[in-house]
């Protein structure tokens, strides 16, 4: 019996093989990936903004160099991901348009403001920590170009988390005021970081299909749990407190139970009503528009060079 294209595709996935750009794939698989990869790329680009806010005010040259390198990495990660998405047939400018018109989403965490220097530490430690938790399993995603992009991203991301934790550690070993600043940053970033894993499994209708396609390897709640279990001892090492009265170690499982996430806040920010949604989008649009003349000039130059070359050939052959 001849297997249908869908069956052949699913068999390949079940054998844990990779799908490459020119292979046949169901439209819904392609659409899911385009949405996920482009959202991921947008998150990397918008993620530069909260941290860029502190480059000119970093407390030392060492911190400034580290932060600049990190922000530059985020731009690079965005580019790896956009190029992975393009292999699925979506144009770069289409994705930019979707971001700039608010049609496409990006990670809600970047709609929170960076009020103090400690926020840069908390972002590296928690936000990049949560991102790593999400991204490591994506290195085994069934779509080849996405998985390969994630391998590069994960390699670079570990430096991000370490520089963040070092900032936190320095503050926590500093004056009482500095330690209070670190505590305040943890208070503000903890819950939004837990929200980065997305809705509870029961509220996440796409998870099942994404797991059947080997795009996702673990559910939102599984990854969130791992993140909590990893972060609690780290906070203890810093000597600051996670702002959750319900946080408790289950002696039997070795896992922490934790309080209910404020899902109203989560959906408010997703829908565009977070503290910085408008600022972030405006900054992105401005950067894109301000760069337009550079792209146009580079293109005009390239065309002129091309014409010159053709003219020289014409003269020689005349």
């Amino acid at each position: 019996m001849e297997l249908s294209l869908e069956q052949k595709f699913q068999d390949k996935i079940d054998r844990d093989e990779r799908i490459e750009p020119r292979d046949w794939m169901p439209d819904s698989y392609r659409k899911t990936l385009v949405r996920q990869i482009s959202q991921h790329a947008h998150s990397e680009l918008v993620g530069m903004l909260p941290e860029g806010n502190w480059i000119s005010r970093a407390p030392s040259l060492r911190r400034k160099l580290g932060l600049m390198a990190k922000v530059q990495d985020e731009a690079g990660h965005g580019l790896y991901l956009y190029s992975a998405a393009e292999t699925l047939g979506v144009e770069r400018d289409t994705m930019f348009d979707q971001l700039h018109t608010g049609k496409a989403k990006y990670s809600s965490i970047f709609n929170y403001p960076t009020l103090t220097w400690a926020d840069i530490g908390a972002i590296g430690w928690l936000v990049d920590g949560a991102a790593i938790m999400n991204q490591v399993p994506l290195c085994r995603c069934s779509y080849g170009p996405y998985a390969r992009a994630m391998v590069r991203v994960c390699k670079e991301e570990s430096f991000h988390q370490r520089q963040g934790f070092e900032i936190m550690l320095t503050l926590c070993n500093g004056t009482p005021e500095q330690k209070a600043m670190a505590q305040d940053a943890l208070n503000r970033w903890w819950w939004p970081s837990l929200m980065m894993f997305g809705p509870n499994d029961a509220e996440s209708p796409n998870t099942k299909q994404s797991m059947a396609w080997n795009i996702k390897r673990f559910t939102n709640d599984e990854l969130r749990q791992r993140f909590v279990d990893m972060s609690v001892p780290q906070a203890a090492l810093l000597g600051i407190n996670i702002p959750d009265a319900d946080l408790k170690l289950d002696e039997e499982t070795g896992k922490y139970s934790f309080g209910e996430i404020n899902w109203d806040e989560f959906w408010q920010v997703v829908k565009g009503h977070g503290p910085c949604n408008k600022d972030r989008l405006a900054a992105r649009v401005k950067a894109h528009e301000d760069g337009a003349w550079v792209r146009e000039a580079a293109m005009a130059y390239a065309e002129k060079q091309e014409q010159k070359k053709l003219n020289t050939i014409a003269v020689k052959t005349a």
Partner: peptide, 24 residues
């Protein structure tokens, strides 16, 4: 092969590739 990028011409593609793919 490491990936792709957009550039106005080949020379710019090499410069961008330096920044995007060889930072380390």
């Amino acid at each position: 092969h490491v990936g792709s990028l957009h550039a106005s011409d080949a020379q710019n593609a090499i410069m961008n590739a330096r920044d995007v793919y060889t930072r380390r």
